[in-house]
């Protein structure tokens, strides 16, 4: 049996976990191609027009996987990975959307609820469906989950050493950052690491000799501290938006970060709430903040122009400040 995993949404956060899990269970895994025009077009064609671009990419990749011969596509319903906070409603209804809005997908989806206490999604209780589908014993499943959890912890530890997910998941040279400028790239993993949709934003920044910091590189405690400070009582409802919020405030306050780019998908609901808070407060902390909106369009010059202008502005500001110090 071949299990397809779409290279989209939380793939960029959980792939090492899933890779190890299925490998340990000796299940053949098929990963969809990196997002490209063919996949994107398919996604756009088969999803409703108003939905955000990452969801369209996901639909495209699910369909592509089935065409490539996947017997089942793994679409976990990640409800929460912290008590009382869920993911965006679209994640909560994702398996239903895939099953009932795409023709012939009803029996091709492997799904189960993930409701865990922490990011480490290895509590076996949520995976009981695997016992039946893959005909494995409880012991095997538990040991596989344990190993997956370890792999994932290693992956997260590498983040904290300053590597971005694309450097870890792909064969991009892992060199220590040497740029003269540091930008906090704030965005969900599926927006930041989908090179096709964001026109290789990270690559472009690296070319411009810019160091990149993303939310994964920040310690969980630091993020949590910022989130608690922002809202002692009523936190935002979305797990990854809270992570971005915490990281965002950390970026704004940090002396090591020269500017923040918020990468957001057209029509992203949680970001429409998150963005204004950071945007308004960026003035207070005197850190330049830019919102970069991405969608399924493929012209890249507008994006490049904006990023270049932003980087130039940051460099200019930096030299000015350095001169002031000399005086």
């Amino acid at each position: 049996m071949k299990i397809g995993i779409p290279r989209s949404l939380l793939f960029f956060y959980y792939y090492p976990f899933w890779e190890e899990l299925f490998q340990e269970l000796r299940i053949e895994v098929l990963i969809s191609d990196k997002n490209n025009e063919r996949i994107m077009n398919k996604g756009v064609k088969y999803s409703i027009s108003e939905i955000c671009v990452p969801m369209k990419v996901y639909v495209g990749q699910v369909l592509d996987l089935v065409e490539q011969g996947a017997d089942l596509v793994y679409v976990p319903r990640i409800v929460n990975i912290r008590k009382g906070v869920t993911l965006c409603p679209k994640f909560l209804g994702l398996p239903d959307m895939i099953k009932y809005s795409l023709e012939g997908m009803e029996n091709k989806v492997l799904t189960h609820k993930i409701e865990q206490k922490s990011d480490d999604i290895s509590d076996w209780k949520d995976y009981q469906i695997f016992l039946e589908v893959f005909d494995v014993s409880k012991k095997e499943l538990k040991s596989a989950l344990n190993k997956a959890s370890q792999k994932w912890q290693e992956y997260r530890a590498m983040h904290r050493k300053g590597f971005a997910s694309d450097q870890l998941l792909e064969d991009i040279k892992r060199t220590p950052d040497t740029g003269d400028l540091t930008i906090g790239v704030l965005g969900y993993v599926y927006n930041v690491y989908d090179k096709f949709v964001n026109m290789d934003l990270l690559g472009k920044l690296r070319e411009m000799n810019v160091n990149i910091v993303t939310f994964e590189m920040i310690d969980d405690e630091e993020i949590q501290q910022e989130v608690d400070q922002f809202a002692p009582r009523k936190k935002m409802f979305w797990e990854f938006s809270n992570k971005l919020l915490g990281a965002g405030y950390h970026f704004l306050k940090s002396d090591e970060i020269d500017g923040v780019i918020h990468v957001t998908a057209f029509g992203c609901g949680p970001d429409s709430i998150l963005g204004p808070f950071l945007d308004i407060d960026s003035d207070k902390y005197n850190t330049p903040f830019m919102t970069l909106r991405i969608d399924e369009q493929t012209g890249e010059s507008h994006l490049l122009t904006r990023v270049e202008a932003f980087v130039d502005l940051l460099r200019l500001q930096k030299t000015k400040e350095a001169r002031k110090c000399e005086k």
Binding site: E50, K90, L92, G93, M97, Y100, S101
Partner: peptide, 16 residues
């Protein structure tokens, strides 16, 4: 426009 939960239900409408 862009309502999160209702976008999910809209995706299901054809089928329903």
């Amino acid at each position: 426009f862009g309502c999160l939960p209702e976008l999910v239900s809209q995706s299901l409408l054809d089928r329903v």
